[in-house]
Write a protein that binds this DNA or RNA. Structure first.
Length: 571
RNA sequence: CGGGGCGUGGCUCAGCUUGGUAGAGCGCCUGGUUCGGGACCAGGAGGUCGGAGGUUCGAAUCCUCUCGCCCCGACCA
């Protein structure tokens, strides 16, 4: 490719609308242009990178025996109505009607369509297992698209689906995917962690997310360096920081104390001169229409996901002030678990074994001293709290770390959700109809690119891994007007191409500074500079990532680069 | 959906408070000189000031409505 003939619209300045690094650089480096909120044009460079990522994904999927399909992005409503997700997806689904008024939608994911294929064709256990995948554009009407390509309304996803007769088959398909994903992300040059993820209320038994740590991310993961523990914050468990003060000893009875105007945990703790860890926090929640009281240590925060699991609900909200008054007889700030009979009380496990704590009295401006969970009120213990700063690993007590991350892949044991709702059954060895057990596995293709940019960039631009950079090598004759340099550059370029190296020749009649800056900006891993040293029969090879420069004889440069590139793709 | 911000040549932005001939830098075109980290000289092209309506002799500027984009929150398989 001759740079002079390509459309690579680099910008000297950052476009005003870009906030996160990957967004800024993808725009500046001429990879993408925005068409609308959360809708992007992928220009030549982006498409080259994306094709390389897809190529790696294909190779690794094919390697586990997965078969590539291509399903419609445009879906009739019926299949989504059958699974029940036509309603569940709500406003996140793009919906439209055809000329006859028939409802359609743009696919957000393809469990339904895959299941509809399977149920028509899979009849016998002998046809199982199957793994089917596609690389397809997905549509989601995000309430707030943002961060460039990280949260968009239209994006490319590799999604695969496994079909098995029994749990062991699903386990095997899941494990194959887990290993394939590791290979894919390794080959894409990413640093990532696989974390335990929340599987949702709908029967999913196991799920893991592949996360890349970056400040541009929106998910939090908790990891322990020492033990390798890693989980999404939604699901992470930990050993809490011990209470800041010992509980008063003895078998004391609850005692009212006047706390005028003291509502927040902060205020009450200060007023009574005790640490927050001696207080009991009580939250009134309405889950699937039923009231619940969630009880936590004063300094702890409720994990919404854990509460949902404990309450067995699909949605919940905080109670309204009127509801609290009606049910508990006091306003928020004076609520507590004692004497509650009209709702279920869920207590966080961190309160187990504590004694003589302080809670609201269910009477405005009063709190109770000497409240002992399990004695003064019935306590059903659950893990309800979110991992907090300073918590340690549950088993080992070693330090935990919380990081902001972006999700690039997710593997998920679906179970029978779709096969049951949509009637996907096969006959087993005994001729008995059995529902098929399924798994679903996704990779966000653009997110792989974004994550790489976020991980590997500097003041000069991006510095992509060799395997996914739009080009592997740029050959830059310093002076285009110099016929000798130009010819030498062309020769090297042709030799690289012949050796199967993905090279580009920067034949533009520009000052060298511009060419160097552009090459750095778009992140080509190696640059061959053809200049002064040519009279000695040498060129200079610069490595983008390490900023190192090596003089290499012209006669050896192809072999030198071939070796480097092969090595870079290995690791 | 709530809160905030921004829409002026391709890009970054000034001008708006206090109405009076649309500007700068970068980029682009032509010619020339240059050529190892975003060169220089000379000449040139390019803008319905997001859109509609209103006030006014006169609107980028004031008023009303509207559309779009960004950020925070709500939301997020």
């Amino acid at each position: 490719m001759l740079w002079s003939r390509l459309f690579i619209p680099t910008l000297r300045e950052n476009p005003a609308e870009a906030e996160v690094v990957s967004h800024q650089l993808l725009l500046r480096a001429g990879y993408i242009r925005q068409l609308g909120a959360g809708i992007y044009n992928y220009l030549y460079l982006a498409q080259r990178s994306i094709l390389k990522i897809q190529g790696i994904v294909r190779e690794e999927m094919d390697a586990i025996g997965a078969q590539e399909f291509l399903l419609p992005a445009l879906n009739p409503a019926e299949v989504w109505q059958e699974s029940g997700r036509w309603d569940i997806m709500g406003d996140n689904m793009f919906r439209l009607k055809d000329r006859f008024g028939r409802p359609l939608c743009l696919g957000m994911t393809h469990e339904e369509v895959m299941t509809s294929i399977a149920r028509g064709e899979l009849r016998s256990y002998k046809q199982l297992p199957q793994i089917w995948y596609q690389i397809q554009t997905k549509f989601r009407d995000e309430p707030r698209p943002k961060s460039g390509l990280l949260r968009v309304r239209q994006f490319i996803m590799k999604d695969s689906y496994s079909f098995d007769l029994a749990q062991e088959g699903l386990d095997a398909a899941y494990e194959k995917h887990r290993l394939a994903y590791c290979k894919i992300f390794d080959r894409c040059g990413l640093e990532y962690v696989a974390v335990e993820a929340h599987s949702g209320a709908m029967g999913g038994s196991q799920s893991q997310e592949f996360m890349v740590a970056t400040n541009a991310g929106e998910d939090y993961v908790v990891t322990c360096k020492a033990t390798g523990y890693a989980a999404n914050l939604e699901k992470a468990v930990s050993r809490p920081v011990p209470p800041a003060a010992p509980d008063p000893a003895g078998d004391l009875s609850p005692k009212e104390v006047h706390t005028p105007g003291q509502k927040s945990i902060d205020e009450v703790a200060a007023f009574l001169k005790v640490p927050q860890t001696s207080l009991i926090k009580s939250l009134v929640l309405v889950a699937d229409g039923k009231p619940f009281l969630a009880v936590l240590r004063g300094d702890h925060q409720l994990s919404e996901t854990k509460f949902q699991t404990a309450a067995g609900c699909t949605e919940f909200r905080p109670a309204l002030p009127e509801e609290m008054r009606q049910w508990l007889g006091a306003d928020a700030g004076s609520l507590g678990p004692i004497g509650i009979t009209n709702m279920k009380v869920l207590v966080d496990a961190a309160l187990e074994g504590r004694r003589n704590m302080i809670s609201g009295a269910n009477k405005d401006d009063y709190h109770l001293l000497n409240v002992t969970p399990g004695e003064d009120f019935a306590a059903e213990y659950h893990d309800l709290r979110q991992v907090a700063e300073g918590d340690t690993e549950l088993e080992s007590g070693l330090p935990l770390e919380t990081k902001k991350t972006v999700e690039i892949g997710h593997i998920f044991k679906l179970g029978y959700k779709y096969s049951k709702s949509m009637g996907l059954n096969v006959l087993d060895q005994n001729g008995v109809e059995q529902p098929v057990i399924m798994g679903s596995y996704g990779i966000g293709i653009e997110r792989v690119l974004c994550a790489a940019v976020e991980l590997y960039s500097d003041a000069n631009g991006m510095s992509l891994p060799v395997s996914i950079a739009p080009f592997e090598v740029v050959v830059t004759p310093v002076k285009a007007a110099d016929a000798t340099l130009r010819q030498a550059g062309e020769d090297i370029y042709n030799a690289l191409k012949k050796a199967g190296i993905d090279a580009i020749l920067d034949d533009r009649d520009m000052s060298p500074g511009v060419k160097f800056k552009d090459a750095d900006l778009i992140g080509i891993p190696y640059r061959v500079t053809v200049g002064k040293k040519l009279v000695e029969g040498k060129v200079e090879v610069s490595e983008r990532r390490t900023k190192t420069m090596t003089e290499v004889p012209v006669t050896e440069v192809v072999a030198w680069l071939a070796e480097k590139i092969a090595a870079a793709k290995q690791s």
